[in-house]
Amino acid sequence: MAENDRRIHSRTAMSAKVKVTHESLGEFVFSTRDISDGGVFIVVDTEPFGPAIGDKVQVQVQGLPVPAPVLDMVVVRKTIDGFGLQFADE
């Protein structure tokens, strides 16, 4: 890991469609770039999705044969191409 990389979980490249629901911004469907035991990175292209760091969202994987669970997550990082979401502590 890079010296300034503070991640504690290894990332695994994974492309999946996820529905992201934000209390005031609404529902969006994005693709993931990677996932780890701590969270997921979603790729945001041209969608008008601009949550603040610390905002809570709900995330659900799409396209499975049965409905996936809805997970509570927190926006922890913003980059030029998307957002890092961390699984919310129970």
Rank of each mutant, 00 (worst) to 15 (best):
V61P: 00
D34H: 04
S10A: 11
I35Y: 03
E47A: 15
H9C: 10
G26P: 04
A88G: 01
K56A: 13
I42M: 12
R11F: 05
I8V: 03
L85T: 00
A88V: 04
D89P: 01
M14V: 08
E27N: 12
M14N: 10
T21W: 06
S10Y: 08
E23G: 09
L85K: 00
V40K: 08
L64N: 14
H9N: 09
I42L: 08
D45V: 09
D5Y: 08
D45G: 12
L64I: 13
T21P: 00
A13L: 06
F41A: 12
V74G: 01
I42F: 10
K17D: 15
E27D: 14
F83I: 01
E27C: 08
A52V: 03
V20C: 05
P48Y: 13
F49G: 07
V61A: 12
D81S: 14
G84H: 01
R77P: 00
T21A: 11
G82C: 07
D72S: 13
V44Q: 12
S10K: 01
R33L: 11
V20T: 07
D55S: 03
S15F: 08
D72N: 13
Q62D: 11
K17E: 11
V61L: 08
G38Q: 00
S31T: 07
I80C: 13
E27M: 10
P69F: 13
V43T: 11
I53V: 12
D37P: 00
V66T: 12
V70N: 09
L71G: 08
E47T: 10
Q62C: 13
V20K: 01
V43P: 01
V76Q: 07
E47Y: 14
M1V: 08
D55W: 01
V75C: 12
S15A: 09
M73G: 07
E23W: 02
I53Q: 02
V40L: 15
S24C: 06
Q60R: 15
M73S: 12
R6Y: 11
D89T: 04
D37W: 00
E47K: 15
V70W: 03
S24L: 09
P67V: 10
H22K: 05
F87Q: 00
A88R: 05
V59Q: 05
I35F: 03
D37I: 02
N4G: 07
V75H: 06
V74K: 12
R33H: 12
V70E: 10
M14A: 13
A2K: 14
T21K: 10
V66D: 13
S31C: 04
D55M: 02
V76P: 06
I35M: 03
V57Y: 03
T79K: 09
G54K: 02
F28H: 05
Q58Y: 06
E47H: 15
I8D: 01
A13G: 02
V43L: 13
R7E: 11
I35H: 01
V75Q: 07
T12F: 04
D81L: 10
Q58G: 02
E90H: 07
M1N: 06
P51C: 05
F49M: 07
V61K: 11
T12K: 11
D55L: 02
D72K: 11
E3F: 13
E27G: 02
A2R: 14
V75I: 15
P51T: 07
T79P: 09
V29F: 03
I35A: 05
T46N: 15
V57G: 07
I80P: 01
H22F: 08
T46L: 15
T32V: 05
V43Y: 13
E47S: 15
N4V: 10
